[in-house]
């Protein structure tokens, strides 16, 4: 990873006006993405992970949206860029693949044409040249008989194959950054494994940086270099893969890690779970957003927690929890080497 980050996001805020009130979808999100790095943005629904990703692409722009903060791709500002400037970057410098491959391709156009459309939007190439590029791309993402299949319609492909097409499309202009929003969630596990392997290979070969938006910590462990854990619109903890998995600092991260059923461990009598529900994005608790569900709440928690490194932590491993580091290491439950929560009664 080079020292000059490819993408720098600082204090990004996204609010949406709705009939019920102002939805604070993304609140003070900052991160760096280095060259050929895979950053996993992890969180549950409503955590703001998808909105963050889509905002980088300018896909959340609407009369009801309000943006603050900055996001710079190779120094170029994305948040305040004009629609036209952003359009030139989209698909060229920064590309995206989406969750549902069944609905993400236009059913009425041939897949080759849909990819050619993107190539010709950015590069001045002839139809024949663009087509050749598409064939190469389809080969690269493992679509057999690419020369014939280029003229197929999306419905003639399975979900896994469509997701390969989406990846080929995203890679068609050699983007510096690839945003993958839950790319394997809608797929079966054996197909998911194929797609993840494809993404790993691509990163090796092309050096593309990837922002992987997901709720699945298994997928994260499989592919990510660094992780940002989001909760209620904020990044609550960020660090390297090993830091987050083996030295998590934020009680929400503990809960997340602890509540996954794992096939490689003896099964506990009860799955540890985080009690309660995530707060509404309209009416959030003061200070730490995780406070109402946290067992370790104390008098500092209503104060606004900055995302920062604390004494005793490795640089780059930041979190938003007020507990002192020693206290955290004491309090988080480590059973059989597994970080988790107290196992007893967390159901109701």
């Amino acid at each position: 990873m080079s020292t000059q980050p490819l993408l720098e996001v600082d204090h990004l805020k996204v609010d949406f006006r709705t009939d019920e009130g102002l939805v604070h979808a993304v609140d003070d999100v900052s991160f760096r993405l280095g060259q050929s790095e895979v950053l996993a943005v992890v969180g549950e629904s409503g955590s703001g992970k998808s909105v963050t990703a889509m905002t980088l692409m300018g896909l959340t722009r609407s009369p009801n949206a309000r943006f603050e903060g900055s996001a710079r791709l190779r120094g170029q500002e994305l948040i305040t860029a004009s629609d036209d400037e952003l359009r030139k970057l989209r698909g060229k410098e920064i590309a995206m693949i989406f969750q549902d491959p069944m609905t993400s391709l236009n059913p009425v156009h041939r897949i080759g044409k849909q990819i050619v459309e993107q190539i010709q939007a950015h590069d001045d190439v002839s139809d024949a040249e663009a087509r050749d590029r598409v064939v190469t791309l389809l080969d690269r993402v493992g679509i057999p008989r690419s020369r014939e299949r280029i003229d197929s319609y999306p419905h003639e492909f399975s979900g896994g194959m469509r997701q390969r097409v989406m990846i080929a499309m995203a890679l068609s202009c050699d983007p510096g950054v690839l945003i993958a929003d839950e790319p394997t969630t809608a797929l079966d596990v054996t197909i998911q494994a194929q797609i993840l392997r494809e993404m790993r290979d691509l990163r090796e070969r092309t050096g593309t940086s990837i922002i992987l938006v997901t709720h699945d910590l298994g997928v994260v462990a499989d592919i990510a270099d660094r992780i940002a854990v989001m909760y209620s619109g904020r990044i609550v903890e960020t660090g390297t893969l090993d830091e987050i998995f083996y030295d998590p600092q934020h009680p929400y991260t503990w809960g997340l890690l602890g509540s996954i059923a794992r096939i490689d461990r003896p099964r506990p009598h009860r799955l540890p779970s985080i009690p309660g529900q995530p707060p509404s994005l309209i009416d959030r608790p003061e200070g730490c957003h995780f406070r109402p569900r946290c067992r370790h709440e104390f008098e500092d928690c209503p104060k606004y927690p900055e995302l920062e490194g604390r004494i005793g932590q490795a640089p780059g491993h930041d979190d938003r929890c007020w507990l002192p580091v020693e206290e955290k290491r004491d309090r988080r439950v480590v059973a059989d080497g597994q970080i988790g929560l107290e196992a007893e009664g967390a159901t109701a």
Partner: peptide, 22 residues
């Protein structure tokens, strides 16, 4: 609001083309 229209936008094609072809 269909997903493929979002994909079309993400490709960086012009808004005119998004509206017309998609």
């Amino acid at each position: 609001n269909d997903d493929y229209v979002r994909t079309a936008r993400a490709k960086g094609i012009s808004e005119r083309r998004v509206m017309g072809r998609h």
